Computed example of a mutant assay.
Amino acid sequence: MRKVLRTVNRVLLGLTGLVLIGAGGTALFGGLDLPRKGNLSMPSGWRWSRPDDVVLTDADRTRWTDSGWWWPVIIAALAVLVLLALWWLLSQLRRHRLREILVDSGDGEGAQLRGRALENVLTAESESLDGVDRARVQLTGRRTAPRLRAGLTLAPHADPCAVLTRLSSETITHARTSTGLKKLPAEVRLRAVKHRAERVT
């Protein structure tokens, strides 16, 4: 789902950018009166070739308004555009958190572990590491192949290399062993605590 959403985002952004660049370039081309200044011969019927040209003529705006199908089609098209825009917005805001993980229970059937429960354990164990002030852990991916995303806020005295080493050898290894996963890829972001300067008198 995440890969599909990323592809849709890129396609929509690319198409929107092309439309805006094309429309803006054409309007700028005519608005600056470049065809006349550059002695360019434009094709017959070409719009926006002079500064006084309008985007839509009166004939274009009123061509089908007397037809019975015009307003229903316009309303339906606008409704579809609004629904697509809302779907796109909600898909951006939705958190891609893994709800459950399939754990190998050894009996051939497996068991399901709540993703939030494992996240809480990983967060608590990460915050117990020396040098970690706060931790935020999120599980993504598929329930048979989860991925870990962690954001660690380090204390001023923390050694980033030591924190990463312990996180990998202890916290992530414990989670991988307890869930029976062969691997648990992790993406870790480190951030230092910023203290406000205080005035000393």
Rank of each mutant, 00 (worst) to 15 (best):
R147D: 07
D107P: 07
L190I: 02
H157L: 05
H195W: 03
V8Y: 13
A162R: 02
A158W: 02
R189W: 11
L83D: 13
M42C: 10
E127S: 12
V200T: 10
P146T: 03
T153P: 12
L148F: 04
A85I: 00
R94P: 14
L83I: 09
T62M: 12
E187N: 06
L20I: 03
E119V: 01
L83E: 15
L81Q: 05
R142I: 12
D107I: 01
V188D: 14
N120S: 11
K183C: 09
G110P: 13
G31Y: 09
T165Q: 11
R61E: 14
D53H: 07
I21M: 00
C161I: 01
Q92I: 00
N39E: 08
R136C: 13
R189A: 13
S91Q: 04
I101S: 11
R116E: 15
L83Q: 15
V193I: 06
D66V: 14
L34C: 09
L190H: 09
V132R: 04
R94E: 12
E170W: 01
R99K: 06
G14W: 01
A155L: 06
P146N: 05
A76D: 01
D133T: 02
L139C: 02
S169P: 06
H174L: 12
D58T: 05
S91C: 04
R143A: 11
R36I: 02
S91P: 07
